[in-house]
C-alpha cells in the first residue's frame, strides 16, 4: 500500500501544503500588514484619524471576511486564471488564500496595535517622533508579541484552508485526502494525510508560541 509511489506523493503533498501555507501567509502579510496599520492609524483617536478611509477599509474587510472561503475560491476563478494562467494547482490556490487572508490579517494587526498603551505613544509624540517613526519604532515594536501570536493563528488557519482547497483540485495534502479518501475509499491514506496536517499544525503553533514568548520582555 505505502509503496515508493505513495510515499513520494505524500512528500510532494507536504511540500505543496507548506508552499501554499507559507506563501499565502507572506503575501497575505504584504497586503494585510499595511492595511492593518492604516486601519489603526485612521481610526477615531488614532495617529491620523480619517473617517472616510477607515470606513471604506473597514467595510471592505468585513465583506471579504463574511464570504465563506470555498465560495470565495470559486468566485475568484476568473481572477486567478487571469493572474496565474490556471485555476487549479498549488500556485493558483495561493491567490484566493491571499485574498481571504489579507483582511483577516489586517484585523489581527489592527487589534494588536490597538493594544499598545496610549501613554507610550503620547510619550513618543512628546519626544518629537513623527507618525512614521511612531508606527515603525513604537507601535510595531511594542506590539510584536501580539503580532507574532496573530501570525501563528493566521498560518494555522491558512493551513486548514489550503487543505480545504484540495476539494477543488488545489494540490497538497488536502487534495490527496480528498482524492484517495473520498473518491477511492482509501481511508488509510486519508488518515495519514490528516495526521500529517495535525503534525504540521502543531509544529507551527508551538514554534509561534515559543517565538512570541521569547521576544516578549513585558513580564519576566
Amino acid at each position: 500500500m505505502f509503496d515508493q509511489k505513495v510515499i513520494g506523493m505524500l512528500l510532494e503533498g507536504i511540500r505543496d501544503t507548506l508552499y501554499m501555507t507559507l506563501a499565502s501567509t507572506l503575501l497575505g502579510y504584504a497586503i494585510g500588514l499595511p492595511l492593518g496599520i492604516v486601519l489603526n492609524v485612521t481610526k477615531a483617536g488614532g495617529l491620523a484619524p480619517n473617517k472616510i478611509i477607515y470606513r471604506v477599509l473597514d467595510i471592505f474587510c468585513n465583506i471579504i471576511r463574511s464570504i465563506p472561503f470555498l465560495i470565495l475560491l470559486i468566485l475568484l476563478i476568473p481572477f486567478t486564471r487571469a493572474l496565474v494562467g490556471q485555476s487549479y494547482g498549488s500556485t493558483a490556490t495561493i491567490v484566493p488564500l491571499v485574498v481571504c487572508a489579507a483582511p483577516y490579517i489586517a484585523r489581527m494587526v489592527e487589534s494588536a496595535l490597538n493594544e499598545v498603551d496610549a501613554g507610550v505613544i503620547e510619550a513618543a509624540r512628546a519626544m518629537g517622533a513623527s507618525n512614521m517613526q511612531i508606527i515603525f519604532k513604537v507601535l510595531l515594536v511594542e506590539a510584536k508579541t501580539s503580532l507574532v501570536t496573530g501570525a501563528t493563528i493566521t498560518t494555522g488557519v491558512l493551513l486548514g484552508y489550503s487543505a480545504m482547497s484540495g476539494t477543488v483540485g488545489g494540490g497538497g495534502l488536502g487534495d490527496i485526502a480528498v482524492r484517495y479518501g473520498y473518491y477511492r475509499w482509501q481511508t488509510d491514506i486519508m488518515i495519514v494525510t490528516v495526521i500529517l496536517l495535525i503534525v504540521i499544525f502543531q509544529i507551527i503553533q508551538n514554534l509561534g508560541t515559543k517565538v512570541a514568548i521569547g521576544i516578549d520582555h513585558r513580564k519576566k
Partner: peptide, 25 residues
C-alpha cells in the same frame, strides 16, 4: 509640523504612568 517636532526635543516630559517602551531595555 516638522518645526514643532524639533521644538519638542527642547521640552522633555514625564508622566504618572512612566510610559516607557516595555519591549526595550
Amino acid at each position: 509640523d516638522k518645526e514643532l517636532r524639533i521644538k519638542r526635543r527642547d521640552i522633555g516630559m514625564i508622566f504618572q504612568g512612566f510610559n516607557l517602551l516595555e519591549q526595550k531595555n
